[in-house]
């Protein structure tokens, strides 16, 4: 059955979208920051991986060892010394500053790497697949990406609800002044949150580069997919975000099955329909 195959591929794609989304969700959840440059940072990570792979001759998966810590540090510095200054009651400064960063990043990547489309090859992994039945075979690479996506959501869930750092994240998100009274250094906590979000972004960027072609202009679309997954899932729920990513992935796969030109469009339409009928998302957090 063709449709089973389509839906399985869509679910696997959804794992990648959930990865795009968790970073956004994390930033919004902890510091009410919506990073418009999120997608461009994903692409930046893809290019960093490209540089690592071509200059050191490492395999793309191994490049994670370098790209993830690098993006972690970039995230920390960016938040601590730039974005923290934009946070406050007015939504305009963070919005416009991250929007500006998005345009700057796109054009810098364009100047440095040209508009040529790139892809990271993982060698044999690229075409390896597991045959489930005659009609259904699952690519190993998409499966790795999906499992990583689920693992990231699970890991963040654990970090958030079972560790001291997670408790501090939630407390700071609730009430910054009172968190400070407990000894929490808010700018450090926010910077750490951004650093973790960027580490997830790094993984997403490397997997994006291994799954599809990329060029400097594909960032905004990744922001939109991530954003749609967050809203579909319902704000504030990490598992909801994973579900949102999967719904978006399936919608796109089904759309592409009908007509390849309709892949992205179908995803957007499903998002808008859910926004109209369930503005709080499908799995909203009960408290909020």
């Amino acid at each position: 059955m063709d449709w089973v195959n389509t839906i399985v591929q869509g679910v696997l794609l959804g794992g990648l979208y959930a990865m795009f989304a968790t970073g956004l969700s994390l930033m919004f959840g902890i510091m009410r920051l919506v990073n418009i440059a999120h997608g461009d940072f994903i692409v930046l990570a893809s290019y960093l991986a490209l540089v690592v792979v071509t200059s050191l001759g490492l395999s793309p998966l191994i490049s994670l060892v370098i790209v993830v810590p690098l993006m972690f540090v970039i995230g920390y510095v960016l938040q601590r010394y730039l974005l923290n200054k934009t946070l406050g009651d007015d939504i305009l400064p963070p919005l416009l500053v991250t929007f500006g960063m998005s345009i700057i990043l796109q054009n810098v990547l364009l100047e440095v790497f040209s508009a040529d489309s790139q892809k990271l090859s993982a060698g044999a992994l690229d075409i390896a697949s597991i045959t489930v039945s005659d009609q259904l075979s699952v690519g190993v690479m998409p499966l790795i990406v999906f499992i990583s996506g689920v693992a990231i959501v699970g890991g963040l869930q654990f970090l958030f609800y079972k560790t001291e750092l997670g408790r501090a994240f939630r407390a700071t998100s609730d009430d910054q002044d009172t968190a400070r009274l407990m000894g929490v250094n808010n700018s450090h906590i926010f910077a750490l949150a951004m650093a973790i979000a960027m580490a997830v972004v790094a993984i997403a960027g490397v997997f994006l580069a291994m799954r599809t072609n990329f060029d400097p202009t594909v960032g905004p679309a990744r922001l939109l997919y991530g954003f749609e997954a967050v809203i579909i899932g319902g704000l504030g729920s990490l598992w909801g975000t994973l579900a949102g990513g999967i719904i978006l992935g399936v919608a796109q796969a089904v759309g592409a099955q009908i007509d390849p030109g309709w892949q992205i469009m179908t995803g957007h339409i499903v998002f808008l329909v859910i926004l109209i009928f369930r503005p709080r998302g499908l799995f909203p957090r009960s408290v909020d």
């Binding site: 919506v34 418009i36 939504i91 905004p220 954003f227 809203i231 030109g261 469009m265 926004l275 503005p279």
Partner: peptide
């Protein structure tokens, strides 16, 4: 239906829908 920064991204999604729509 979206507020603040999410409104901003929402308007962007709509623009993309129009772009993809006219391409068809």
């Amino acid at each position: 239906r979206l507020r603040g920064a999410y409104f901003a991204i929402g308007t962007w999604v709509v623009a993309e829908v129009y772009r993809l729509g006219f391409a068809q």
